[in-house]
Design a protein around this nucleic acid. Structure first.
Lengths: 152, 152
DNA sequence: CCATCATGTAACATATCAAGTTACATGAAA
DNA sequence: TTTCATGTAACTTGATATGTTACATGATGG
């Protein structure tokens, strides 16, 4: 369990949901993602709070898309996860008294900041709708599919 | 101990060394960095292999700069550390059979790749000499300093 | 030669965090 | 009221950077 794959995971879930009418239970989604229902609920919690999805309890309950896929970007989804750290590297000390460290931080912060900004910008260019359309292309002429036929 | 701060740390060490003639023992450097001598040896090992620094045992031993500071970039130093992961996020599955996951990966890989490339390019633009000059500016008119007066 | 110093390295300890798991409460539908 | 599904807390697991201890290796100076 090395790098954070929540963004990858939650996009996978959303794209699955966009392919068929819902609702989807956490268990169904978890099976398709080869993971645990609780993990699904965890990564979906933030999306629910922002109104991108809805969840219903009881019989016939589960998760439903509740947003305009052409309006929501990958960056929005990232933010819904709580904007976890993008970079694996950081400064030893954030506000050092040591001038040497300050010089190092200044240089690294510049580079790190640029990279983060570019990444966020790129993520902001991709809507969920675009991802769905790309998926459609990959599916080619195949007819609508079940959730179990194409696990990772 | 969250994010990898080895690059920050090793740059700090190199900059300290560039300010005064050597050699410097791991213990001296460790004190200035408020860490352990073994940690210093560990992050310096890769630099030694690439010839950026030398190390001598015994009396009067320690670490010495062994490169042209105007030729070595922060990117080189990063590579000497073994090029650890730059991004904190990654794909759930690297080579998925699932087409949904492939679509997600394609989009994320594009953004991640761009950000990594930019970061590496930025790091490649900064030489150790430039860091040293920036440090000199920050030091202002102060005279050459000891190692213990400006800890982080 | 030998005591001292310093690096080199293995081994172990600690801290953090994502991910996985278990357990149970809450609430909706049949 | 039974069943189903989410909500959430608590615990476990695995990975990794960092910190620490211990000891071997080799160089210097007496």
């Amino acid at each position: 369990m090395k790098r954070d794959s929540r963004l990858s995971g939650v996009l996978h879930v959303l794209l699955h949901m966009a392919q068929q009418p819902g609702p989807f239970t956490s268990e169904t989604l978890a099976k398709a993602m080869d993971t645990n229902p609780v993990v699904i609920r965890r990564i979906m919690a933030g999306l629910r709070e922002l109104g991108y999805v809805r969840s219903e309890k009881g019989h016939g309950g589960g998760w439903t898309l509740a947003c305009d896929l052409s309006k929501v970007t990958v960056r929005d989804v990232y933010a819904a996860l709580g904007s976890p750290a993008l970079l694996a590297m950081g400064n030893r000390t954030e506000a050092p008294g040591c001038l040497v460290e300050q010089a190092v931080n200044a240089a690294l912060d510049q580079a790190f900041g640029d990279a983060e900004a570019l990444l966020l910008a790129r993520l902001g260019e991709v809507t969920l709708k675009m991802l769905g359309e790309d998926l459609r292309k990959r599916l080619g002429s195949r007819k609508p599919h079940g959730m179990s036929a194409h696990h990772a």
